[in-house]
Design a protein around this nucleic acid. Structure first.
Lengths: 239, 239
DNA sequence: CGCGATTTGTGCCAGCGTTCACAAACGCCT
DNA sequence: AGGCGTTTGTGAACGCTGGCACAAATCGCG
């Protein structure tokens, strides 16, 4: 009946990064009508091995029942609690360009407990534009917006050249979690958490594997017929 | 004068994932007029430690000069070669919704050697729409498009429910590299490379750290004054 | 009530990735 | 030419992560 004590234990960063994936799989299983789920089944749905899954979940306490599995609803609740998703987090999005528009309209945020509460941009031409229920404000208003809207997370979707300056302003306004889509390295004070998502980097990693395969296959595959070159046991792929 | 032999040695996956970041930093340094760069400087610009950088670069061969550093232009060339970026990769984007529009217009792809050569969607209402130089085609045309456009990489930006089916079609058409933005696990045959980017997961990881801090700081910080609570040596943050 | 089938939780180990520390190599200056 | 400061490349230690295998625990059933 406690469940508020356990999570003080240090979770490994790798585990934390996987918890959202378990959560996603659990939501799907719940919607499919499952009340309980075995580590094997949940692992398959999450793209990991069952041993890894059990080890991860054991780090947040023992919420499984031997011989039965995990209670889906309880596990959802526990993971959401550990991730701090019980409290709504307000997000400010800075940089309402191409990518910013898409992020502002992305339904996946709201459905998972995040609310984009503010849109900001440095370009006066964009200030005043309405997207859904929000109006784009000037980035100079950031300190005020962070206060009134209780912003917890800043999402940077500006060009690389502006990202560091925006990060500085976010930090100065008290924001300590930043999601950076700009292709650059941000320097922030101790205690501020930054996560980077660089879309082009993902493509470059894929390019490497393409290139590697090209070298492995001397000259074939120049034309079309890829066909299915074997049954190839389907496997699940993790990020 | 060889340089085509070394990269057969197996690079670790962690190293491959960092090479694009080095490349990005090198381009910036080159534009800033640097001819050579030390591992320390390049590491700072890339958000890693110098030891890690040197170990990574040593895996592609020794292209540094002791006492001097690395030749920027040469290193760019080597990394681009290893990543297979000398050859233009054609990308097909499937799912022209909110996110798809943004990806289609994202300048960061083209500037780094990738070309979005095809846009596809399952919704007949979207087929025919023009974005830049491309017209949205129906996803049923995928086999033909992959052939005529020499598609090497498929980017999935559909809702989660449609992603697996799209992945199946991509694989059937011969595509072996997939970048998946849909929040779900894809099952693909052996030999197909999948990378997942889930925007909401990044926010959830940030939420965890926010939540953790909240527990560490009992009740303060409810109001505004975040101020700068100390000089806090700025530090560089890695992804 | 007891037994067998099932599944969790975890101790152990192997492999990978990171960091440290230093010898070897290089350029520059005298 | 030689010495000195600088920087690379790498061997070794360390910590983390993942996988295996199994004991413990639980349920269902006779």
């Amino acid at each position: 009946m406690d469940g508020v004590v356990a999570e003080f234990r240090a979770l490994s960063e790798a585990t934390v990064a996987r918890l959202p994936e378990y959560l996603r799989a659990l939501h799907m299983l719940a919607q499919a009508g499952h009340d309980t789920v075995s580590s094997e089944a949940l692992a398959n749905a999450s793209g990991v091995t069952s041993a890894k899954l059990r080890k991860d979940l054991s780090q947040l306490g023992s919420y499984g029942t031997r011989g039965v599995g995990y209670d889906v609803a309880l596990l959802v609740e526990q993971i959401e609690h550990v991730l701090g998703l019980t409290k709504r987090r307000n997000v400010a999005l800075i940089g309402i360009g191409n990518l910013g528009h898409a992020l502002a309209g992305y339904a996946g945020f709201a459905s998972r407990g995040f609310r984009i509460s503010a849109l900001l941009d440095a370009d006066p031409a964009r200030v005043g534009e309405r997207l859904g229920e929000l109006t784009v404000r000037h980035v100079d208003d950031l300190p005020e917006v962070v206060g009134t809207e209780r912003i917890a997370i800043g999402v940077i979707a500006t060009p690389a050249g502006a990202a560091q300056e925006v990060a500085n302003r976010l930090v100065a306004a008290g924001v300590r979690s930043i999601l950076n889509f700009a292709p650059c390295v941000l320097t922030v004070p101790e205690g501020v958490e930054v996560r980077n998502v660089d879309l082009a980097i993902e493509l470059q990693i894929l390019s490497f594997h393409e290139h590697r395969r090209e070298r492995a296959e001397p000259a074939s595959r120049a034309g079309l017929p890829p066909a299915s070159d074997g049954p190839g046991a389907p496997r699940v792929v993790r990020s």
